[in-house]
Simulated scan of single mutants.
Amino acid sequence: MAPSYFRAVYKVVDGHEIDVDVYLPQVATSTPKKNAGHPIIINIHGGAFMLGSSEMVNKNQVQDCLDRGFIVLAPNHRLCPGVDLLDGPMRDCRDCLDWIHNGGLHRAVSSETSDPYPLDLGQVFAFGTSSGGTLALGLGFEVPHPVAGIYDMYGPCNFSDAFWTSEVSQVAVKLPPGLTEDFINQVYAEKPVPIRGGVSLEGQAPGAPNFSEPRQAFAFTQIARGSVFKAIYPAEDWAKVDPLRNISPSFPPTFIVHGTEDVMVPIGLSQELYSALVKNGVECGMEEVPGEGHTFAAKMEVGSRTWELQRKGFDFLESLVKRV
């Protein structure tokens, strides 16, 4: 049975609410720190910054975190291209982090339950898959309260790499004929900018893409053409959004998991990120998952080898809590 949650609003933009799903562990669950509050993990969905929603996070991973005593937050964010990467998804996730530190989560939890849920605001972590991994990394720089640790599951980085302007043939062959620019560009007229859209590109939602829906057709077309970042961040000021360009000795401890057969986000990009972390003396780790592609988060079975390998990321975050 999927874990239960309640929904809270962490931000309002032009009168439109942006929400977050809040999962609470059992009150009886012992927290990693004696006599302290629950640590918090922000779990950000994938979808190439253009698709997906909070409902699409892997519920088995959520339950794993709950069993460890974490409060889990799965935020929605505005989807590109109606807003760009920096001012939309990245800004929203950073505002969710601010909402936590400014008492928003405490108020939301207090209004939903009579049980005590003390929060440890010194132990807020971030986790994300695919584009969510990038957004999780974005909570480690240019924020007032960087997260205490990050688990990045095959998130894009190094946005100036030639890969990001190269055609992805495996996606191109799946595009149906007859997708016109007028049809796919309907996404630019969506008001308000949506916070939920279609399938999750990194595999957290079942079902094939629906190319009769402009947003899904737009996203897959950009991936196929190698024009994702041109579509979502035309300014190309990579220093503001690229995690690789923002690694420093003060960057939060980070763990990376990536499949060796990933063609949507090549593992070499994560290897570059890991090398930068090591070079800067950041506490870090990386697990390369044999034989897995970009969508393995959806297909992995609890107890499988892949499941156990990716759990090392949560082990890493939990170890950061226990040492404090």
Rank of each mutant, 00 (worst) to 15 (best):
M1E: 12
A2L: 13
P3A: 13
P3L: 06
Y5E: 06
F6S: 08
V12E: 15
D14L: 09
D14I: 04
G15K: 08
E17M: 08
D21R: 15
P25E: 09
Q26P: 08
V27W: 08
V27D: 05
K33L: 15
K34E: 15
N35R: 12
A36G: 08
A36K: 14
H38C: 09
P39F: 11
P39G: 05
I41W: 04
N43Y: 15
M50S: 01
K59D: 08
Q61T: 13
Q61I: 14
D67F: 02
R68Y: 06
R68S: 09
G69V: 12
I71G: 03
L73W: 07
P75T: 11
N76I: 06
L79S: 04
L85Q: 04
G88F: 07
P89G: 05
P89T: 03
R91C: 05
R94Y: 10
R94W: 09
D95F: 11
L97T: 10
W99I: 07
N102Q: 15
G104H: 08
G104Q: 09
R107A: 15
E112Y: 14
T113Q: 10
D115C: 11
P118Y: 12
L119Y: 09
L119D: 11
G122M: 06
G122S: 13
G122K: 09
V124L: 09
G128C: 07
T129A: 14
S131V: 02
G132Q: 04
G132T: 00
G132L: 05
L135Q: 14
V143Y: 05
H145A: 10
Y151L: 14
G155H: 05
S160L: 01
D161K: 04
S166L: 01
E167A: 11
V168S: 02
L175C: 02
G178E: 05
G178M: 06
L179P: 01
D182A: 15
F183V: 08
I184N: 01
V187L: 03
V187W: 02
V187C: 03
Y188V: 04
V193W: 05
S200H: 06
G207T: 11
A208I: 01
P214A: 06
F218I: 00
F218S: 03
F220H: 00
T221V: 03
F229R: 02
D237E: 10
N246C: 09
S248Y: 02
S248A: 14
P249D: 07
M264E: 02
E272G: 10
L273Y: 14
L273T: 02
L277G: 03
V278G: 00
V278C: 13
G281I: 03
G281M: 11
V282A: 08
V282I: 10
E283P: 00
E283I: 13
G285F: 10
P290G: 06
P290S: 08
G291F: 12
G291K: 09
T295W: 01
F296P: 02
F296M: 13
K299G: 07
E301L: 13
T306W: 05
W307I: 09
E308G: 00
L309V: 12
G313F: 07
L320Y: 11
K322T: 15
V324L: 11
